[in-house]
């Protein structure tokens, strides 16, 4: 309980840091952000009056701390402000795109785990064997492959040559397959390597020998007694892979031209639509921090030893 409290306090602190970082990013703009935004919108150098009016409209005349405070208070109330380049509020733009990205993230996570766990286990059960060698090699190729290229490779083969799936866009399940495979296979490589190492560790543990000494079938020893223990670190890392999903989503959404948070962010960056950039960045940071918290709590649930000790080892 004490740990939980401490953990929550740190989480809030980090979230505060994330929000400051996000907000102050605008300050990096070379020159005047208002001018830069207007140039992107209109395509020519704005007049003095337009700039003043724009500043007034978006409250850019206040000093930085005041603007941050305003923004932070609005944000806490769920108001992320008004987009510079469209009539919509940032919140509603995000609301439209978020489901697509969540769908992609979930599907690729499922694919990643479905590939990674059996592959990692097969590797660990016979380390140094053919299967292990192949799986490790495959995993290394997987982590090394840029997912934007993998995406095009899949488009060329599965969409253009074999005509199995649509090339791009979003919609039904068939639009989801190629992006999810692209994102999932890279992730599965990381997870498979982790499953392998933790399984190797766990298979050496005394309780595995106990399980064998009971006359248990090897399959049950591996998938019940060993995997359940290996799952503890695997869940942690799989959760932290969310970072990979979000990184990857930006690129994969661009490859498959899926409307999602990633494409929203990239478009906003090119349009210098600062409220949208801030909103999406903040959301990504918040999602990531909260996932870490969730992972931590799951970890505690999976490992009964931690729960009552208060502090993780």
């Amino acid at each position: 309980m004490r740990y939980l409290l401490k953990r929550l306090v740190t989480t809030v602190l980090v979230l505060g840091g994330v929000s400051i970082l996000t907000f102050s990013m605008t300050a990096l703009t070379p020159g005047d952000p208002a001018v830069a935004a207007l140039v992107e919108q209109t395509g020519h150098q704005p007049s003095e009056e337009t700039v003043v009016a724009f500043r007034e409209q978006h409250g850019l005349n206040e000093p930085f701390p005041v603007r941050y405070a305003d923004w932070a208070i609005d944000t806490l109330g769920g108001d992320l402000g008004q987009s510079y380049s469209s009539e919509q509020t940032v919140a509603s733009m995000i609301g439209q795109r978020l489901p697509n990205t969540v769908e992609l993230a979930a599907a690729s996570m499922v694919i990643a785990i479905a590939i990674a766990v059996p592959a990692g286990v097969a590797s660990a059960v016979n380390p140094g064997g053919r299967v292990d060698y192949a799986a490790q090699f495959g995993a290394l190729v997987g982590v090394s492959m840029p997912n934007f290229w993998l995406g095009y490779l899949l488009i060329i083969v599965a969409a253009l040559w074999l005509d199995l799936f649509p090339v791009a866009g979003s919609g039904g399940l068939d639009h989801l397959v190629l992006p999810a495979v692209t994102l999932g296979s890279g992730m599965s490589a990381v997870i498979a390597r982790l499953v392998r190492t933790t399984m190797l560790d766990v298979l050496d543990a005394p309780y595995i020998r106990t399980a064998r000494s009971k006359g248990l079938r090897e399959r049950i020893v591996v998938y019940k007694h060993a995997l359940r223990n290996a799952l503890v670190p695997v869940v942690t890392i799989a959760g932290l892979q969310l970072s990979y999903v979000l990184n990857g989503a930006v690129v994969v959404e661009a490859v498959f031209q899926r409307p999602g948070l990633g494409t929203l962010l990239v478009d906003a960056i090119f349009a210098r639509d600062y409220p949208v950039i801030q909103g999406v960045t903040l959301l990504v940071g918040v999602i990531f921090v909260l996932t870490n918290l969730a992972v931590d709590l799951t970890y505690r649930y999976l490992d009964p030893r931690i729960d009552r000790r208060g502090e993780p080892a």
């Binding site: 543990a205 005394p206 309780y207 020998r209 106990t210 399980a211 064998r212 000494s213 009971k214 006359g215 248990l216 079938r217 007694h225 359940r228 223990n229 503890v232 999976l302 490992d303 009964p304 030893r305």
Partner: peptide, 25 residues
Amino acid sequence: TLRRVRGEDISIVFQDPHETLNPVF
């Protein structure tokens, strides 16, 4: 055969008292 022998005929209590039982069950 070994599985049957372990399940029915011979049992062992291992030496190391640490972690001979599975910590998660």
